[in-house]
Design a protein around this nucleic acid. Sequence first.
DNA 1: CCCTTTCTAGTTGCGCACAACTCAATTGCG
DNA 2: CGCAATTGAGTTGTGCGCAACTAGAAAGGG
Lengths: 143, 143
Amino acid sequence: MVEPTGLEQMVCFQLYAASRAMTAVYRPTLDAHGLTYPQYLALRVLWHRGPTTVRDLGKILDLDSGTLSPLLKRLETQGHVRRTRGTHDERTVIVDLTDSGHALRTTMADLPAQVACAVDLTEDEFIQLHQLLGKVRSMKGTA
Amino acid sequence: MVEPTGLEQMVCFQLYAASRAMTAVYRPTLDAHGLTYPQYLALRVLWHRGPTTVRDLGKILDLDSGTLSPLLKRLETQGHVRRTRGTHDERTVIVDLTDSGHALRTTMADLPAQVACAVDLTEDEFIQLHQLLGKVRSMKGTA
DNA sequence: CCCTTTCTAGTTGCGCACAACTCAATTGCG
DNA sequence: CGCAATTGAGTTGTGCGCAACTAGAAAGGG
């Protein structure tokens, strides 16, 4: 395979490859519900937080409106969310789950277990990886 | 990992977010040369291996022809690579660096150092992360 | 109170990723 | 050998991700 021209470079590539491999694990189940991984992430935020502005979704998922606007539009078309203008600040748009969107939470309740099973890491390794990825995410230029 | 604590889900999201944060570190330098991160990855393989078929590039980068064909076409338009049909097997296409493509190797020689500097990890942490990501990449369904 | 500055969401454009497909070249099995 | 199955590259279509931009609403200073 690729000879290391420097460990950092290898790590960067592995990050890129591992991220895609990860979403590939989710794909079969998500496909069955007509969802993509980013759409699933947005739904997860709504399941935990309830009604949320596009702005807050962006801060939480680290995505801008250029990505979120069409994504949420598709979730709305699918009937999983509703989008309403904020009343006290008409710039904001509040995203809220429909019954269909709420229902998905229980329908896909076993997804975490599936993923945990596919990724063969111990509890300690999960925690280590969690911490290391946290450090990567908080690097310079990501403030 | 038998009991899903929700941590796996967090790790998956962090993988997704960290990967994008990583490429964002490369972006300013790559932009200056009119390159994207996947294009840079392809060039790195060619710098190290010399002439390589599209098929082998795909195996190494874990990308299919649907992604590579247009990407390599753009690198060819930019003048960094040449694409020629294989002589022994006319199905294959061999990708090779032009002078311009070779020159980029020295022009961007300081990029690894930039990245290592931005990502504030110790040598040991880099190695740990390398190993953990390797495990993630070799999970079930990624064979 | 007006006017500039800032902020939120959305739109456009481009380049990945990936599925599904086409087509030609090669392989392999009878 | 003949021909079906496989393989390698490319094309098409969809949905991100991100830069650059727009439109409209709010904030704030004079």
